[in-house]
Design a binder for these strands. Structure first.
Lengths: 118, 118
DNA sequence: GATTGCTACTTTGTTATGTCAAGTAGCTTG
DNA sequence: CAAGCTACTTGACATAACAAAGTAGCAATC
């Protein structure tokens, strides 16, 4: 129902990770997030994230015309951003490990529970 | 560094999951969280969560004396809470799956990347 | 018997971040 | 020219974690 809180903090890292794969712009990132399963991210959610990442020097911006619409703002990751993302992955991994233990009580099995793998 | 945002929403589910395993009280829950790796959860963080869960009828409260301190408030999960937790697990699973895809680019491998196992 | 230290819960103010809603604007097509 | 897609902006709002401080019961030590 309300995934807002669950998404907090996670979104930032995900967006940064998308940009890490190569220079891209907001609208396209929105598509990437959707493809990965984050379907209800609105523009009003994403763009502030980009602004923030930019302000914090984790990504940098370049304006360029779009072949089919208004100007695009292309973002690429900075060295600082790469470093931050690395740290983020570690923090996320640690927390989700704890959550797995608490939510699925992984006492004997390790990776069994979270497999809803198609 | 600042795991506050990453924890948002997750904590609630974790606390509920601990209570699901059996009637318990705040101070003990704090210990369970710590054991699972969530080491820096303060009392000022946990207790409001319990209050909220109680107010939302996801858990219920019973006061009882402690053998070695002030009165304890024992919490147990309600039917509504069980249902909520089930839904939570599903939502969490879906989001963390998306995050895994985005953060670790699981295109061919499935569980390789997130294994920093011992 | 006062201090220290552990257990146990409360409260208040702060901050970060996602969300909604509305808006601006370029371009294409009917 | 109106509709519809692309593309970004802005402002008001809600939620939840956190730090810091406080209140209290009880036990052991000095």
């Amino acid at each position: 129902m309300d995934n807002a809180q669950l998404l907090k903090g996670i979104l930032e890292g995900c967006v940064l990770a998308v940009i890490e794969k190569g220079e891209t712009y907001g609208y396209e990132i929105l598509g990437e997030l959707e493809k990965a399963g984050l379907e209800d991210i609105g523009e009003g959610t994403l763009y502030p994230v980009l602004t923030r990442l930019d302000k914090n020097k984790l990504i940098q911006c370049r304006r360029a015309k779009s072949p089919l619409g208004p100007i695009r703002k292309y973002y690429s990751i900075t060295a600082e951003g790469t470093e931050y993302l690395e740290d983020f992955r570690e923090r996320y991994s640690r927390i989700s490990k704890s959550a797995d233990i608490l939510l699925y009580d992984n006492s004997s099995e390790t990776e069994e529970n979270k497999n809803a793998n198609s």
